[in-house]
Write a protein that binds this DNA or RNA. Structure first.
Lengths: 127, 127
DNA sequence: CGCATATTTAACCTACTCGTTTTGAAACAA
DNA sequence: TTGTTTCAAAACGAGTAGGTTAAATATGCG
């Protein structure tokens, strides 16, 4: 697996149990037993999920007697959002282009579907 | 691996090559050979990365003669952002706390808003 | 200390990922 | 048809992810 920070975070988020754990932690810190309760897996499995989340920087942990509390650390999620921001224009553009296409189809029988190929030609040049 | 849509997308993003491919596609559609060129892996490896991206819905593909063009599909990234929005308040809160901390320290320098290291110190109390 | 609680670690298993090389297939040109 | 180009699929190996059970560890109580 890739070990760069962003890959660690995405990898950590690529599991429904781990995402559910993060969601649960938005309501407050919790013990391992509390976090394990909703899921049909054993506690060691949850322990390892927590370790993955901790390695990704998505949680921090403290002790309270014999228990260990997990605490949500959202900063890496902010960095994910920063990375994603670069692509926001593309889903925005998709909607704009769809609107344009629909408008064009509505006004007249249009015939230039190769606009996307024009984009590909632009992509031919590297740099 | 989990097969729900969100997990597929996160899993697809958890690889630097695949993220770089998406970035490259923001400049326009590209062939497999063009996408493979910057990387030190063989063409079949890129083909499989593209299949992962396609399964996640992050690219679509069309033929142009013997070549196959990959096209960025940003919609799943928007859904990722929607999922992440839930956590925005938590890094906002972190910032409020960071601001308080900095106000408490209140002394020497107030230059960069980029001192995320302070957050790391707080969150990474690993030992 | 001895014991209980809460959690981690170890050992193991299965299945998947990501890379390789080799082979197959689709589109097209002569 | 044959050949070329471009890509996908097959087959294989090394490493990893995620699950299990069983044992080890850390903390607190009497």
């Amino acid at each position: 697996m890739a070990t760069d920070p962003l890959s660690l975070v995405f990898q950590a988020l690529a599991d429904p149990i781990r995402r559910a754990i993060l969601t649960r932690l938005t309501t407050g810190d919790a013990t391992v037993a509390e976090l394990a309760e909703p899921f049909d897996v054993t506690q060691p499995a949850i322990s390892r999920h927590l370790k993955v989340l901790e390695t990704a920087g998505l949680i921090s942990r403290t002790r309270r007697a014999t228990a260990r509390l997990s605490h949500l650390e959202a900063e890496p999620l902010r960095e994910v959002t920063t990375w994603l921001a670069r692509y926001q224009q593309f889903w925005d553009e998709s909607h704009e282009r769809l609107d344009e296409l629909l408008a064009a189809l509505q006004s007249k029988r249009q015939d230039d579907p190769d606009r996307t190929d024009a984009v590909a030609e632009k992509g031919n040049g590297h740099g």
